[in-house]
Design a protein around this nucleic acid. Structure first.
Length: 264
DNA sequence: CCTATAGCCTGACGGC
DNA sequence: TGCCGTCAGGCTATAG
């Protein structure tokens, strides 16, 4: 599930449910998802604290605890959160949970265990150490900066968009959507794209991610005419021209595109 | 710098 | 009903 818009939805969810409640207990059901932190450190830092605010960078979600640091959540392919007031409502595949002193609980669900839970003192240094580029919706990432970071690349456009160290937040589905709306074949070499075309991709990226983030990534609320919307409904024809959507493996992932509307 | 490949994990789905 | 292969919205390590 989680690319930038989905994680934005989870941030809003955390803000709406989990702030200003004292954490009574940290439950770690599977240590394999802990990254660069151990159970005792996590408990020491979190228990007794309260989340003041949620934050997001790319696909990472941060929970800020004043004077303590940040709980960092990454969802992998199959992550989600559920806040529930009854412990018995704890969902399947909960790998980690914050159990608040008031009895409520925030559960980190991670079916495939590809997600990670970590902790950092400082967000900026975490972002730096994790080699993350600017968030795709960061206002400082303007058109010129975007073009500059792409134009010197030698590879294909789709994997470049998905490269978190260039721009953080875009995954397989949204890279397909961006290239579909920009009319570019995902296998196009970046260094063959004009600045004007890179500008078109930038605009599509912004428009799409903003719109999707506003709906927290909820697939059923995405606009008609979007590729991922129609694919998700099991429709494999192009929303614009009704040609059959094609699949191609591009740097290890399945790219979906319209052979008619997207050109190299 | 870039690509392909394999690996980490589990569950859903289709074919037989 | 069961078994099998395939696939899935992420990322990392490795080799070429």
């Amino acid at each position: 599930m989680p690319e930038l818009p989905d994680v934005e939805g989870l941030k809003q969810y955390m803000d709406a449910t989990s702030l200003h409640q004292t954490i009574g207990h940290v439950a770690t059901y599977d240590k394999r998802i802990l990254k660069d932190v151990n159970v005792s450190t996590l408990r020491k830092r979190l228990e007794g604290g309260q989340i003041q605010a949620a934050g997001r960078h790319g696909k990472y979600l941060f929970a800020l605890l004043p004077n303590r640091g940040n709980l960092v959540l990454h969802f992998g392919m199959t992550g989600n959160l559920l806040y529930h007031s009854n412990p018995e409502d704890e969902p399947d595949h909960t790998r980690f949970a914050l159990i608040f002193a008031n009895g409520s609980q925030l559960s980190f669900i991670n079916v495939r265990r590809l997600g990670q839970v970590s902790f950092c003192e400082d967000r900026q240094s975490f972002i730096h150490q994790s080699n993350l580029g600017p968030d795709a919706l960061d206002h400082e990432l303007n058109r010129d900066r975007f073009i500059n970071s792409f134009k010197k690349r030698r590879g294909m456009i789709k994997p470049a968009l998905m490269n978190q160290s260039i721009v953080a937040g875009i995954g397989n589905l949204y890279s397909d959507e961006i290239l579909f709306q920009a009319g570019i074949d995902p296998r196009t070499k970046v260094n063959t794209l004009s600045e004007k075309t890179l500008g078109t991709i930038y605009k599509a990226m912004r428009r799409i991610l903003k719109t999707a983030a506003r709906h927290g990534g909820a697939a059923d609320e995405l606009p008609k005419g979007w590729l991922i919307k129609s694919m998700q409904r099991g429709n494999d024809s192009c929303p614009k021209c009704h040609a059959k959507i094609e699949k191609a493996t591009v740097s290890g992932r399945t790219a979906r595109f319209c052979p008619n509307c997207q050109k190299r």
